[in-house]
Amino acid sequence: MSDYTLKELMTIAAAREIQDGDIVFCGTGISMVAAMAAKHICAPNSTIFFETGAIDSILEETPLAVADPRVMFWTSVNGNLADSFATMQNRFTGVHVVGILGAAQIDRFGNLNSTCLGDYTRPKTRFSGSGGACDVGSFVNRTITFMQHEKRKFVPKLDYLTCPGYLDGPDGRKKAGLPEGGPMSVITNMATMGFDENTKEMFLTGYFPGISPQKILDNMGFEIDISRAVEVPPPTPEELHILRERCDPQRLIL
C-alpha cells in the first residue's frame, strides 16, 4: 500500500481538490497530470484548458508544454491566448475556473514569485517570469499551488510579487481592485495547506504519512497554524493505477 512516490501523492492530493464541473487551468508538468487524474477520479465533467487556447483536449500522451501539439488534438475548440485569458477575466466563466500554479517563492497570503531572486533589474537568479500565472491569480476564484517544501521557498517576504494571492490580507484584493477569489490550497512534497476564511493566512490542513507537523514547520520561513491538520490519506490502489496507466504511462512527469 505504501508503494507510491511523493510526486504521486502530491498529484493525487491536487486532483482530489478539483470539483466536478470545474474548468481547470493547467500549467506544465505535474499540474497537467493532476487535472488528467481528476477527470478519472472525482471530476469526470471537469474541463481541462490551457492558456494557449486549447479547450477540453483529449490528452492521449502527456504534453511537455502548454503549447505541445498534444494539447491541440481532439479539442472542442482550438482558440488562442486572447480567448483563454478572457475566459478567466469574464465574470460568467471565470468563477468556474480553478487554476493550478507553481512558483519559486510563496508567502503566507499565497502570493507567488516566479520572476527573480535579488534585485529585479540585476537579479541573482532569474526565472521564467509570469507567463499566464499573474493573469490566473488575478482573475480566477480558486487556485492550487504546487511548491517544494523548503525554507527558502516559503518566505516572509517575496523578492518579487508576480502573481497575486490575498496580497496583504483579508482586504488586499479588494483594495487593489482585483476580483474576489484567491488561493485555495498549496500542495508540497510534505503537506497540504489552506487559507483561513477570516485572516486569509496559510494554515496546515494535512501532513503526508510519516511526516510530522513540526518537520513541516521546520522547513518554512514563517509560522503557520498546525492545529487543524490531519494526516493526508495515501493514494488508493485505484488512484495509483489511474495515475500510472492512464495519466502518465511514459513516466515523463511523475
Partner: peptide
C-alpha cells in the same frame, strides 16, 4: 511574459544568463 521552454528548460538558459 515567459522566458521558459516547458519541460526542456523551466527557465530559458541563455535568457537567464543574459539577464543575470
Amino acid at each position: 511574459a515567459y522566458g521558459g521552454n516547458g519541460r526542456f528548460a523551466p527557465t530559458c538558459v541563455r535568457f537567464k544568463k543574459a539577464v543575470q
